[in-house]
C-alpha cells in the first residue's frame, strides 16, 4: 500500500511541472510556431529563478518558501525574455523553426553554464557550475490525506503544484474562452485569416512564444526545487523533449495533455516503486524507468492516426500568401 501511495505522490510531483512545460509548448505550437526549444526555455528560466533565489538568500531575511515564489516569478520572466530570441528568429528572421529550436537549446545550455560559473566565481570565489537551492517544503492536507489511495494525492504536496494548476487553469481559459486565445489558435491554422479579420498575426505569435517560454521556465525552476535541489547543467535532462512528446500525444490540447503528463509521472514513479517492492537492486531501476517510454511508443501506435497538428505550424508567416 505504501508503495502505491509513494507512486502517486512522487508521480504527481514529476507530472505537474512537466505539464506546465507542455502547456508552454502548446501555446507556441497552437500559434503556428514549432517549438523544440522547450528544453532551452526551461533551463534558462530556471537559471534566472535560481540566480534571484541565491541573491535573495544572501541579502535578505526572506523565508525559504517566500524565496521560492519570487524565484518562480523570475523564472517566468526569464523564460519569457529568452523566448524572444526564438520568436525573433522564427517570426522576423524567417529561420527554420525546428532548427531555431535546436539552436536555442544549445545556446541555452552554453549560456547558463557559462554564466553560472562566472557568477559563482564572482560571488563565492569558486568556479562551481551549480547553485544549491535545497528542496521546497511539502505539506499534506489534514483529514483527506488519511483516505487510502485517494489520500495520496493530497499527501506531501509541493506548494508549487497548486500554483501550477492555477496557472494552467488560467492558461486554458485564456486559450479557449478569450478573443486572444481564439486568435492564437487561428494563427496556427491560417494566420492570413487573422490578419484579414483585423488581428495582428505576427504580434499574436510573438506573445504566444513568449508565454511559452515563461510557462516552460516555471516548469524548470520547479524541477530545480524538487528533483534536483540545485541549478546545474543536470537540469538539461531532456524533460523539455518529454514535454513535447506529451503535447503531441495529447493532440495539442491542454486537457488531454494533462492526463498524458499524469500518465508519464505515475508510470515513471510506478516503475521505480515496483523495483523497490520486488526487492531488486537499484541497478534494476533503469529497466523499470524504460517502461513509460515503451508504453508511450505502444500507445502512440494506436492513437497517432487521429493526430491533428496545427496546420500552419512550422511555416514562415508570409502576409502576401494566399
Amino acid at each position: 500500500m505504501s508503495y502505491i501511495n509513494a507512486m502517486i505522490t512522487s508521480g504527481l510531483a514529476f507530472a505537474i511541472p512537466l505539464f506546465i512545460m507542455a502547456v508552454g509548448g502548446i501555446y507556441s505550437e497552437k500559434s503556428g510556431i514549432t517549438n523544440l526549444a522547450v528544453e532551452g526555455f526551461q533551463g534558462f528560466g530556471a537559471f534566472c529563478g535560481a540566480v534571484v533565489a541565491v541573491f535573495l538568500g544572501m541579502n535578505t531575511g526572506l523565508s525559504s518558501s517566500a524565496i521560492i515564489y519570487v524565484a518562480m516569478l523570475f523564472s517566468f520572466i526569464g523564460g519569457a525574455i529568452y523566448a524572444i530570441i526564438h520568436a525573433l528568429l522564427c517570426i522576423k528572421f524567417r529561420a527554420d523553426q525546428v532548427i531555431s529550436g535546436v539552436v536555442i537549446n544549445i545556446l541555452g545550455v552554453a549560456l547558463t553554464t557559462f554564466l553560472t560559473t562566472t557568477i559563482n566565481t564572482a560571488l563565492f570565489g569558486n568556479a562551481s557550475n551549480k547553485f544549491t537551492l535545497g528542496v521546497s517544503p511539502r505539506f499534506s492536507v489534514p483529514g483527506i490525506s488519511k483516505i487510502p489511495i485517494i489520500g495520496a494525492v493530497f499527501t506531501n504536496i509541493y506548494p508549487f503544484e497548486i500554483i501550477i494548476l492555477i496557472i494552467a487553469v488560467y492558461a486554458w481559459y485564456l486559450m479557449y474562452k478569450t478573443k486572444f486565445g481564439m486568435r492564437l489558435r487561428a494563427c496556427g491554422e491560417n494566420p492570413q485569416a487573422v490578419d484579414a479579420a483585423g488581428g495582428d498575426g505576427a504580434k499574436t505569435r510573438f506573445l504566444a512564444v513568449m508565454s511559452s517560454g515563461g510557462l516552460s521556465g516555471i516548469g524548470g525552476i520547479c524541477f530545480a526545487y524538487s528533483l534536483l535541489s540545485q541549478f546545474s547543467p543536470s537540469i538539461y535532462l531532456g524533460y523539455g523533449y518529454l514535454a513535447i512528446a506529451a503535447m503531441i500525444f495529447g493532440n495539442w490540447n491542454i486537457i488531454p495533455t494533462f492526463f498524458v503528463c499524469i500518465f508519464f509521472g505515475i508510470a515513471r514513479a510506478g516503475g521505480y516503486q515496483l523495483c523497490l517492492a520486488m526487492g531488486l537492486a537499484s541497478i534494476y531501476s533503469d529497466l523499470f524507468l524504460m517502461i513509460p517510454y515503451i508504453l508511450t511508443l505502444l500507445l502512440l501506435m494506436f492513437f497517432s492516426k487521429r493526430n491533428h497538428p496545427p496546420k500552419a505550424a512550422g511555416e514562415v508567416y508570409d502576409k502576401g500568401k494566399r
Binding site: 512528446a245 501506435m301 497517432s304 492516426k305 497538428p309
Partner: peptide
C-alpha cells in the same frame, strides 16, 4: 503508424 519521427526518436533515445 503516423508517429512523428521527433517523438519516436526522443522516446527511443531514452529507452
Amino acid at each position: 503508424f503516423n508517429i512523428h519521427e521527433v517523438v519516436s526518436t526522443i522516446m527511443i533515445n531514452y529507452i
